[in-house]
Design a protein around this nucleic acid. Structure first.
Lengths: 136, 136
DNA sequence: ACAAGCGCAACTTACATTGTTACGTGATGT
DNA sequence: ACATCACGTAACAATGTAAGTTGCGCTTGT
């Protein structure tokens, strides 16, 4: 695993879960499938639970499960839940050197945010059920 | 500078250059504007030169300049030149554990690549002249 | 000849991510 | 009750990447 491991792991796992909702999977099993560590899995899926995409239960034969129908979870939900923000600029840091530069700076930030938003819109058009079923 | 420094730096610099093509800027000046280092600037702009978006010359009063008209440089050109690949998955690494998992894996990769492509298409609709002029 | 600038390589530093271990807590089954 | 399973979380090490920095060689213009 290298690039975009979190998004890739999440996508992979949720798609897999979509093929058998109602079924509980342990973080250990998921980790084995994904070739990683149970703690890492819990870290990533924990964010998805905060976004009400997944639910988790302790104890025997429990673990993780989808919290919604597979056709009601979009890639945008996942992307936002993971707080990836590939594009959007940071804005924290350097105070503006001169006013002209500052105008351009904030303008560039606006552009980047627009791009980020259009990316999310694009992601909202695909559900994990779509991913599972290969319907583009 | 933190997130997306390269893309942000490139966008900012090229937009600024678009307001005065034909004019040479040194990496030192650019670095001062961007609050970073001349070498870092040359590293980033070097990739844009490889993509024929910029040209550079040594010697007195030279430096960097746009290699094309500002309305002929799109954000997609910049994105591709920087080889950011925010979305696309890596694929290098783990051999497939089982065939079913492998099918899903490659399927997820396909989805991610599709998304990446649609992002680039979106970026191709905006030139750095547009960025400069605030026309969305 | 001299200075300005880029090109490039090597190194350090900072930071983010992942992997790993350990321990606490709640739920389940015997 | 009790042991077990599985999550929740913290702490730490290992890793990788980007940024910053320095130095030197080469080209160009004065």
């Amino acid at each position: 695993m290298k690039r975009n491991s979190r998004l890739s792991l999440a996508l992979h796992t949720l798609s897999h879960m979509a093929s058998a909702p109602e079924h509980w999977q342990t973080s250990a099993d998921i980790a084995a499938h994904a070739g990683t560590n149970p703690v890492v899995v819990r870290r990533v899926l924990g964010k998805l639970r905060q976004a009400n995409l997944l639910e988790s239960e302790k104890g025997h034969a429990k673990g993780w499960r989808l919290a919604r129908a597979p056709n009601e979870i979009t890639l945008a939900d996942i992307y936002v839940a993971l707080e990836e923000s590939f594009i959007a600029s940071d804005d924290s840091g350097v105070p503006p050197p001169c006013s002209v530069e500052h105008a351009l700076q904030s303008h560039v930030s606006t552009i980047l945010n627009d791009i980020e938003n259009s990316l999310v819109e694009r992601l909202a058009n695909t559900t994990i059920l779509d991913v599972l079923h290969l319907r583009k």
